[in-house]
Amino acid sequence: MNTAPAERLVIRREHLPMLGRVAWKNVRLRYKSSLFGFLWTLFNPLLFLLIFLFIFSRAFPQVANYPVFALTGLILWSFFATTSGHIMGSLVENAPVLRSIAVPPLVFPLSQLLAGVFNLLLSLLPFAAILWWFGWRPSAVTLLVLPAVGLFAVFVYGVSLALCALNVLFRDIGLLWSALLPALFYLTPVAYPPDLVPDDLRWVAAMNPLYHFTALAREVLYLGRLPDAGQWITTAGIALIALLGGTAVFNLLRRSFIANY
């Protein structure tokens, strides 16, 4: 065997077992030593749902079955907020390992993505039960939630990858992100219907990538309708741009990581 060391820091097929093991560790550690474990994944969106029901359900009488409307948005949002945070911190948290073992840095953000997606898919079952309780019924269209979640995961990964790389050099990124998240939450139509935004300002709302992913998920889950081709193309395009952009930022900064963890 004869490997030039430089080749070892780029992720390849041989790193798959490593990736799987680290992802599984992330899944297990997320709620380890906590009393309620996995239930915490559900707790956060449900708490928000409760608040929404209390405050907003009468504010938007035009929204039919508001709990189902709100919960579909909240599931996506919760995945976005948690996973982006986990991915963003993944390099800095694993600095001791990255400084002492030739592990491709990408293993850590990627394994956090896998753990996040696993957690999301697992949480879809109890969420389905809760939606059922609110009168929601699945149909053949419901299965489209999987490609929709897939596209969303690619988008979240791309954005978080750029943040993760920048966070190695400037820890401000992490702080900035936690300040920006609540603002983004109110910009995204999670609690309110998107048509609440005045028509002439709709283009501003549409600048927010999350707007399109929420719309796609609602089309499938809440309205139970087949999303049109335009929606798929828009979201797939955003996901692809995020992935390419995030990867580019990561690769651009990759060589500077080792001195700045």
């Binding site: 430089a6 400084r99 002492s100 060589r255 080792i258």
Partner: peptide, 9 residues
Amino acid sequence: RVLAGIIEP
């Protein structure tokens, strides 16, 4: 670290 492949020359 160079020998370990952690830092690329």
